Amino acid sequence: MAVSGDTEDSSCGLCTAEELTDIMTAASGRYTLLPNTPYDEVYPGIYVGEEDFAKDLIQLKRVGITHVVNAAHGDTPFHSQTDPSRYKRIHVRFLGVPALDHMNFDLTPYFQSSADFIDEALQSGGKVLVHCVQGVSRSATLVIAYLMIKKQMDVRDALRLVHSHRDVCPNDGFLQQLCDLNKVLFKDK
């Protein structure tokens, strides 16, 4: 994504990974908390969760999940091994994003396609699970990007909303990528 201009103030989109970390840790005395549930609805129809929940087809059907985004799609121990064939028999649509939870992994090329997939799920009356291994970094980043792109939310508001429903902690690299997205989306505001 192209980023332009460096003179914006915080009300116009400029933010830092440190500022976003402060938002996530303010209520806990500056500690990073991890979720104590396998999944949480963070926005109507959008669930963020961990790999074990994503693999439990009975629970997915019980919750009414119709679409799955695997934000850690791949075959290494750092990925989550869910794929389209797992969901075909229960008629769940699938999108795989081969992200690593590393500060230098560029997740931005997947922001738009993930946002489109999530939006399509919601527009069709479905429910979407966005998961990674623990449901705290990669998956949360994609959901925050969705809220920014499709719901025109500022990164701070999107993070606060998601974090109010699930303890998430995207890594600093992903937080900076969200700040960069915010700068692009709100450059004229």
Rank of each mutant, 00 (worst) to 15 (best):
A2I: 14
D6I: 10
T7R: 14
E8R: 15
S11R: 15
E18P: 02
E18N: 11
T21W: 04
T21S: 12
A26D: 06
Y31L: 09
P35W: 00
N36Y: 04
P38I: 09
P38A: 12
D40S: 15
Y43D: 09
P44S: 06
Y47R: 07
E51D: 10
D52A: 11
K61G: 02
G64V: 11
G64Q: 07
T66S: 13
H67C: 11
H67T: 06
G74L: 03
F78P: 00
F78D: 12
T82G: 10
T82F: 08
Y87S: 13
V92M: 06
V92T: 14
R93E: 13
R93H: 10
P98S: 11
P98R: 12
A99F: 03
L100E: 01
L107V: 14
Y110W: 14
Y110S: 05
Q112S: 10
S113V: 15
F117W: 01
F117S: 03
E120F: 06
Q123R: 15
G125C: 07
G125L: 05
V133I: 13
G135H: 02
A145E: 01
M148P: 04
I149F: 05
K150M: 14
M153H: 04
D157N: 12
R160A: 06
L161I: 09
H163A: 08
D167Q: 07
P170K: 09
G173V: 13
F174T: 11
L175I: 08
C179V: 12
D180P: 09
N182Q: 09
L185Y: 00
D188V: 05
K189R: 12
